[in-house]
Amino acid sequence: MKKIPSISRRSFFKTAGVAICASAVSSRDAQGSGFSEELMTVLDISKCIGCGECVAACKETNAHKFPKVKKPIPKMFPPRVKVEDWSDKKDIDDRLTPYNWLYIQSAEVEHRGKEYELHIPRRCLHCINPPCANLCPWGAARKEHSGTVRIDEDICLGGAKCRTVCPWHIPQRQSGAGLYLDLLPRFAGNGTMLKCDRCYDKVAEGSLPACIDACPEGVQTIGPRSEMIRYAKGLALEMDGYLYGLNENGGTNTVYVSPVPFEALDLVVEKGKGKPHLAAVENSMANEETLTSALIAAPLAGFAAGVIKVVSDIRKGKRYD
């Protein structure tokens, strides 16, 4: 299995080739439009030793994207709206925060008579059809051609709807920063939302995301989605293991491979605010996808009903007499 990551790495660079060739990162490349196929990451958690190198690399690499908080942070109206200020707690790394987009969950479990101590790097899974982007009313959250789901921190008003609708509640809010300060800071919005952007700027330059680059154990592999699905399934078959993320929420571009069922891991990992679960997730956008059929049929049905009405009126002599 060792060969596959190197193939994937080559394919990753091939996939990102358009961006690599660019001498400077244009905004177009930075939006990930040069990708022929969405990128997916596979995490073999049997390899993760929980060293935290990925967490440190993520923080260091993305520090320039962290919000610049203007203090004092305006008090919110009505008072039920709480300010969320992490600017004095930037070092916290045991959960997701606006300044910590990746952390490591740990689990001690027994499976088939064997004891396991597993570590699971947790961050945004970059959904195939992300509800955070689809339900954002402001156009601040979006999915890019590379498969990366990003929140534009300059546009975001910090309403945190993305966090509410995310099945894992991944995005984290920092009050006192962002566009809302220039609008009605007390009455609308509450900061800016932040989460993993899969190092879109590094990827556009042809580099690997920081967490993948820094990992001494080669836990993560990134490459074209179709190739990564084959790799993840092969890896699971080899270790007689389990997959998480391939079908969750209708499919994501992050797949975890584990020797222990994720139901068992979900029972023992610490969960809560900024600490996502590992439970199975139905497709959040399934109803919207069904209702789209109704929206396609509606004008045709309305037109047909209208024609029937007109023909009926003509036959009854109610029109054109």
Partner: peptide, 20 residues
């Protein structure tokens, strides 16, 4: 969901009225 469903009903009505 309600916004989607109401939009479908509205577009049905609009297509009906436009035809007439």
């Amino acid at each position: 969901w309600i916004h989607y469903a109401a939009a479908a009903l509205f577009i049905f009505l609009a297509a009906w009225f436009i035809t007439i």
